[in-house]
Design a protein around this nucleic acid. Structure first.
Lengths: 145, 145
DNA sequence: TCAGGATGTAACTATAATGATTACATCGAG
DNA sequence: CTCGATGTAATCATTATAGTTACATCCTGA
């Protein structure tokens, strides 16, 4: 099981917009950098737009960030592309036998305990801003230049 | 996306073994409590056995825990049933354009940052023992009795 | 103003993972 | 030796994902 690559694609797209803010970022050009189909990019952009993270010009093309990099966290992006339902990272088997004491109560207990794990994961995403990511990315680019 | 219910099924099974250690826990009986097919239970049991968490008697049937409850964490169970590959909770798109500076470097950066999130989630699982879970479960059972 | 390039979406396909189920070989205790 | 149980392969339906084609709609500049 893996969390959809839509999330990593979205981060890639936003990083591009951050690093090359003046370029004419069309879905086709972006798709070229990501290595996927322009429609995939447009779909992700649609979600980012709905979340208020970017503006996109229909017709002439091009996209821009609506906030500064330190105001966008990875959690914002993760929520925007809707890769994991809230509180439902873990699939809790949903037909336990209510006549068995364990079966009748295990769901509530698992829900409680596993929510902690999910929250910890999402908490880390909330603590990473695009500014930090782009900073790490820039160092990476320079070290390989 | 959700992490396979194999994990919650495995926890359910182990809880049963903990709460009813003297019962003749056959795969059919356990499947009755979980609300699934006996083969599903046998497959999960096979993984738990391979991980050294339970012993199963072929032929006559029945299963038992091999350790005390405080020596089994949810992370042990999670690893045993192999629901998430190590360091691969997030699917990082794998064909970025190496000719683009962002495309050439984004993978490494995402790998680094997202690993933190995964580790935080798994760290919580490592801190929850079956003893704690069964304790919460017992209270839940009594409060609904 | 209108032609060309771009976005927004619906529809379809291939692929993979999951959970369930059937079938059957093998094992072990009475 | 027989009956009930485990171990496991094979199959199937369902679902999600990523990709692709197609096309209506939208800007903008010539």
């Amino acid at each position: 099981m893996k969390i959809s690559s839509r999330f990593s694609i979205a981060v890639h797209v936003l990083s591009l917009l951050a690093v090359m803010p003046s370029a004419h970022n069309t879905s086709e050009w972006i798709a070229g950098s990501v290595g996927t189909n322009p429609v995939i990019v447009r779909r992700v952009m649609g979600q980012l737009k709905k979340a208020g993270l970017v503006t996109v010009k229909a017709g002439s093309g091009g996209a821009h960030l609506t906030r500064s990099l330190d105001e966008i966290t990875l959690l914002d992006v993760y929520r925007a592309v809707d890769v994991v339902e809230e509180g439902k990272l873990f699939n809790i088997h949903n037909e336990p036998n209510p006549l068995c004491q364990v079966g009748a109560n295990i769901q509530a207990v698992l829900q409680l305990l596993l929510a902690r794990a999910q929250e910890a994961m999402e908490g880390v995403l909330a603590d990473i801003t695009l500014e930090e990511l782009v900073s790490v990315l820039s160092k990476q680019i320079q070290s390989r230049a």
